[in-house]
Design a binder for these strands. Structure first.
Length: 274
DNA sequence: GTCCAGGCATGCA
DNA sequence: TGCATGCATGGA
């Protein structure tokens, strides 16, 4: 992989095992949109980005090496060897054709608070609606950047909202979960950074203590916002997939179950199984 | 009109 | 411990 700055843009060449379309729009992150020129745009860690892929070349518009090192390298998981990971997953003959078909799905390492908050919203909800709610949440309570995009709101800002404010966003019965979660993080009662340093089981236990967080939301947050690649979220789609694994998950998923899960989740939805 | 979506809290056995 | 039920909303 070679990276160079050129006319204020960042060009990355020789990228392996990345499918930007799938990674940004497979239900793990809810804020990315694609413009008419084929650039995905969004904000993560308070930083805006316009990004486009052409084969093994990736262009990041209006950014620099420093920002790449600080934000995007980790966000897009560029230091992880996904070629090796996919080879390993494919030892399981069931997932092998799925990995080939959707080759290049990566885990996006999102902010802990954004991931946790977003997946509380996601419960018993569909992806289209989730995106709409989060869009309203960000434009109303996030910070407007000079490019016109909005950051994901901070827990401090959201801690000022009432249950009714959250209901007004269309969050339905989840409003009371969100209201309590924002306040717990803002006042320090809930330390997400500390949870990130725990072992998987302990981290999961800590998230399960949160009002409105069950096993599915906990595992999504752990996988997408806390760096636990072995967290394996099972939602209604994955429950159907699990019927294909009556004896449990294969050994080759160990340590990277979350990545396998993303391929299987996408496969299930694309083929409307069940 | 019914069913469903990246589920969870609650009450009851 | 496990299972049934209620829950907000909008698209199919």
């Amino acid at each position: 992989m070679r990276i160079k700055e050129e006319d204020g843009n960042l060009i990355i060449e020789g990228v392996e095992c990345l499918n930007l379309d799938l990674s940004l729009d497979c239900g793990q992150a809810f804020r990315w949109k694609k413009d008419a020129d084929g650039f995905w745009y969004g904000v993560a860690f308070g930083t805006p980005l316009y990004i486009k892929q052409d084969g093994s070349t990736v262009v990041m518009r209006d950014t620099d090496l420093d920002t790449y090192e600080k934000v995007w390298k980790n966000y897009f998981d560029f230091d992880r060897d996904y070629v090796e990971i996919c080879d390993r997953l494919k030892r399981d003959s069931l997932i092998a054709p799925t990995v080939d078909e959707y080759y290049g799905i990566r885990i996006l390492n999102q902010e802990s608070f954004e991931a946790l908050f977003s997946f509380v919203i996601s419960q018993q909800n569909n992806i289209k609606r989730i995106k709409g709610i989060i869009d309203r949440l960000c434009t109303q309570y996030g910070e407007r950047l000079s490019c016109g995009l909005y950051t994901f709101p901070t827990a401090e800002r959201l801690s000022k909202l009432s249950v009714e404010d959250f209901e007004a966003l269309g969050t339905g019965y989840r409003a009371r979960y969100l209201e309590r979660l924002a306040k717990a993080v803002a006042c320090g009662e809930l330390d997400l950074g500390a949870i990130k340093t725990l072992e998987l089981e302990q981290a999961r236990k800590a998230l399960l203590d949160i009002y409105g967080v069950g096993i599915k939301v906990a595992n999504c947050a752990l996988l997408f916002g806390f760096g636990f690649y072995d967290a394996f979220p099972v939602d209604v789609w994955m429950k159907r997939v699990m019927e294909y694994y009556p004896n449990g998950l294969p050994e080759c998923f160990d340590g990277i179950g979350g990545i396998a899960q993303q391929y299987l989740f996408h496969w299930a939805r694309e083929n409307n199984i069940g």
